[in-house]
């Protein structure tokens, strides 16, 4: 299975993502923002960072890059896409995922290990996780405060599109466990079809115990497992 990692000007987690896939033992290649060629990737990773300097709004400019036109077509035809941090912001700006990310409620950059609860483990991206499993994964962002209208949140709940929620160490969903003010403690969501996911925490930074956690590897292992089972193709 081949992963493609997009590099925008200002991406700074592209090498982390690349290395995570190497640790996973799968094929991986970088995709340049000015190209529209996805190089036959089976899954696209939109990495974290500050694409185009975060000018205007995070992800707002990246959305119009040549590679994103291809990524959008790929996603709309059922291709697997995961957006991490700034990549999540790009997916929201592109309209591939619903909602928006506001400035953190406390107005400070948040960079630390946090805990997220797997709300839905029957997705392509969480298939090796247990129901309600708590993952220890770092965050590093200024604009991670997920926002959507009340009605939309209800809809996301009903459709099981809320994949990860911030929690404490024991898996309790609480205000104390919410690092940025996200509505309903939302840390990651998918599209309705389930082939596109966006999340603020950085699983690619938690793939070896020496880094403090290897829980992030489960996201990538899930993708590989689902793909080999044909889950992705079936849904596409």
């Amino acid at each position: 299975m081949k992963f493609g990692v997009v590099t925008f000007p200002g991406s700074n987690c592209d090498y982390d993502a690349y290395t995570a896939i190497k640790v996973l033992g799968e094929e991986v290649e970088f995709l340049w923002h000015k190209s529209s060629d996805l190089l036959n990737s089976d899954v696209i990773i939109l990495p974290g960072g500050f694409s185009y300097g975060d000018y205007l709004r995070s992800g707002a400019i990246a959305r119009f890059s040549p590679i994103m036109k291809s990524v959008k077509e790929f996603a709309q035809s059922g291709g697997l896409v995961i957006g991490i941090c700034n990549g999540f912001q790009v997916l929201l700006e592109s309209g591939l995922l619903p909602g928006a990310l506001l400035r953190n409620a406390h107005l400070r950059f948040a960079g630390k290990y946090i805990y997220i609860k797997v709300e839905n483990n029957s997705t392509i991206f969480t298939s090796v996780c247990q129901p309600g499993e708590v993952l220890k994964i770092p965050i590093a962002h200024m604009d991670g405060n997920y926002y959507n209208f009340d009605g939309e949140i209800e809809y996301l709940k009903k459709q099981s599109q809320i994949i990860f929620r911030y929690c404490d160490k024991d898996g309790n969903i609480s205000e104390a466990g919410n690092p940025n003010g996200s509505i309903y403690n939302i840390a990651g969501i998918s599209n309705k079809e389930g082939n596109v996911i966006g999340m603020m925490p950085h699983p690619e930074r938690a793939v070896e115990n020496i880094l403090g956690s290897s829980d992030g590897l489960k996201i990538f292992e899930s993708i590989v497992k689902s793909f080999s089972k044909g889950m992705a193709i079936e849904r596409a």
């Binding site: 205007l56 709004r57 707002a60 119009f64 929201l92 700006e93 619903p98 909602g99 928006a100 506001l102 926002y147 959507n148």
Partner: peptide, 8 residues
């Protein structure tokens, strides 16, 4: 399309 995000 660009200057505003119609969601927010």
């Amino acid at each position: 399309k660009l200057l505003s995000n119609p969601v927010i």
